[in-house]
């Protein structure tokens, strides 16, 4: 079935499935080993290369599994991993598996504008104030009413020396907010890019000389996962690659755009809205009786209609007129034998050039305005008791 419509064909809110948005995406690492080649790492040899692509690869490679930074021997010791997701996603979690001792401090950032600006999602450190100027996460969660980037404990080392950074976007959000009804939560979970800043190696923890030259250190990680749903605002159940290779929502409900964030041109009878589980808020096509291809939205009309309809048809064709192309334009009248949607619904008045007092007939009945003594729908005959004269000004005169 169609997730975006019920069995009766009525629209309903729909969302794409949960995916790893980072899978297969390019990762930009500020430092990667192997250039120049060392004994342990050679970027030109696939058997000994540790490229950043390994962070988001699908697996199955015969060579190494982990990305590695260069050996870091002096400040700055931070290394940045940036993953463009290709389009907006609504995040659920971010995780990164370390192949060696995990860093002592990590910052997780997001961008909502394809990398032009960045905002923190969370920090991970035992020295929150020193590293990030933040207080450790309060046990009660965010202090304010909305989500915020908190400072959590750093990823813990496992017995085998590895470690896992795991962040749930709900960790920074106060309980009780739900995505359907909270614009601030919708904004909080939305990201086009993810950036992980490995700020400080563990081995330097507590070392007063951590900004000076120290023993070489290498960050090493694999499996950067960004769990989330392609952001389609409740109007698509999947995202597809368009002709240019860009990931875009497969929009339904009369919406369009990469995130289904606007109504299609003819679907502007009411304002765009995000769908919820209770209401699809589908964009509605303007009602133009088949006589117009374009329409525009008018907020005043929408309010006056009790927030039901605000579409105004543009360029009504087939001699129709009106907000819904629902009556005939001047000089034409409604042919009752044709459906309103028929292209022949409006017929020319055809008022008689001499018998009629004007060219405009009644738009409903087709009756032309007749001069004295003239009769007929088009005013083309003298009435009973009248006869044709020679004067075009008074074409019918009383019969003597």
């Amino acid at each position: 079935g169609d997730p975006c419509h019920d069995e009766g064909g009525a629209p309903r809110g729909c969302v794409p499935g949960l995916v790893n948005a980072a899978l297969g995406r390019d990762v930009l690492a500020s430092s990667t080993c192997g250039r120049p080649a060392t004994r342990a790492c050679d970027a030109s040899d696939p058997r000994r290369a540790h490229p950043a692509a390994l962070l988001t690869a699908a697996g199955g490679t015969a060579g190494p599994l982990c990305w590695r930074s260069d050996s870091l021997v002096r400040a700055p010791l931070n290394v940045t991993l940036t993953v463009p997701l290709g389009k907006a996603f609504e995040l659920v979690f971010v995780s990164l598996r370390f192949c060696s001792q995990p860093p002592a401090s990590v910052a997780l950032l997001k961008s909502q504008d394809h990398g032009r600006s960045w905002a923190p999602l969370g920090f991970f450190s035992s020295r929150c104030a020193l590293d990030y100027g933040r207080l450790p996460r309060p046990s009660t969660g965010p202090a304010g009413p909305g989500p915020e980037a908190l400072c959590f404990p750093p990823p813990q080392a496992q017995p085998d020396g590895s470690g896992l950074l795991a962040f749930s976007v709900q960790d920074g959000s106060p309980p009780g907010l739900d995505l359907d009804n909270s614009p601030v939560l919708q904004d909080w979970v939305t990201a086009t890019d993810i950036r992980v800043v490995l700020t400080r190696p563990t081995m330097l923890l507590g070392d007063a000389r951590d900004t000076e030259a120290v023993a070489p250190y290498t960050y090493s990680a694999t499996e950067l996962q960004v769990g989330g749903r392609c952001k389609c605002n409740g109007h698509a159940s999947q995202c597809l690659l368009d002709a240019q290779g860009h990931l875009v929502c497969d929009c339904r409900h009369g919406t369009e755009g990469p995130d289904c964030s606007r109504c299609k041109p003819f679907y502007c009878d009411r304002p765009w809205q995000r769908a919820t589980t209770r209401d699809a808020h589908a964009c509605l096509a303007c009602s133009c009786n088949g006589h117009a291809r374009r329409c525009r939205f008018n907020m005043e009309l929408y309010r006056l209609s009790g927030r039901r309809s605000g579409g105004v048809c543009l360029n009504c064709r087939h001699n129709t007129a009106g907000r819904h192309c629902h009556y005939c334009r001047e000089g034409f009248y409604r042919d009752p034998g044709q459906a309103l949607s028929d292209r022949r619904a409006c017929r020319a008045c055809d008022c008689h050039p001499v018998g009629a007092a004007g060219k405009t007939c009644n738009q409903t009945t087709g009756q032309c305005p007749c001069k004295d003594g003239v009769t007929g729908l088009t005013c083309n005959r003298c009435a009973l008791g009248f006869q044709q004269s020679r004067s075009p000004v008074a074409p019918c005169v009383k019969t003597p």
Binding site: N380, R381, C382, Q388, R390
Partner: peptide, 23 residues
Amino acid sequence: EVMPTLDMALFDWTDYEDLKPEV
């Protein structure tokens, strides 16, 4: 009784040339 349609040929346009419709 149905009256005949107006006969355009019977009208005298001498004084109303500017009103004469194009046929």
